[in-house]
Write a protein that binds this DNA or RNA. Sequence first.
DNA 1: TTGCAATATATAAGAATATTAAATATAATA
DNA 2: TATTATATTTAATATTCTTATATATTGCAA
Lengths: 114, 114
Amino acid sequence: MISGELLKGSLKTIVLKILKEEGPLHGYAISRRVEELTGGRIRLTYGALYPVLHKLESENILITRQENFNNRTRVYYSISPKGHSVIEEKVQEMKEYIESLQKIIELKPGLNYA
Amino acid sequence: MISGELLKGSLKTIVLKILKEEGPLHGYAISRRVEELTGGRIRLTYGALYPVLHKLESENILITRQENFNNRTRVYYSISPKGHSVIEEKVQEMKEYIESLQKIIELKPGLNYA
DNA sequence: TTGCAATATATAAGAATATTAAATATAATA
DNA sequence: TATTATATTTAATATTCTTATATATTGCAA
């Protein structure tokens, strides 16, 4: 698995994008979906995931709906009207970030300046 | 500029890859090179950069050479023998991470499961 | 039928890592 | 002369993640 170090800062964008395209989903399902999409390489720990979901809800970026399923509570999250523009920004930012990282990762041996 | 949030966890790999391909370089030059490569989108703040360089040196991943240039001290960093294998791992990890992020970012609207 | 894995959410303690700001100092340029 | 660029360092603070713990049900296998 990819070290959690790299995940820092991306978690919010990952959650929002998944919810935008495939929501409403509950926390556990988001986590499984990310694992599935990335071949198990990215795993969202619940200690990080749920606090992020709660924060996004408190910021009115996500809205929730509670349901009972087999006596277990499920909290379904989806994007609020306000949330959509936030997601577009976050996704755009991540695309630029990925492009930037690729320019560095694909560097070939160059001149040595010293 | 890209929010620092995303940078977390990537900084070390960025520094190591730059030094591998274009080192030896001093801290200030590393920062400028990253800015140049990413069109100003990634800026390494010195409060983050120098502590990382010091840490990598203390872990024997980087080695240093001090020089005087116009009465200013420059500390040139380069990769130690031990460092090369560390870099390969880090770069490979980042490649996989980028691939994983792309799978999420490129998601198209799908079935709504709820 | 007993125990384990999977499902489902929540939160506290701690570690790691970045930002911001402040300090220091010289050279080059306007 | 004042500002910008060069060059490094460190402390205080904020953020964000991991790990561990708690709770509780369902389904499957031994």
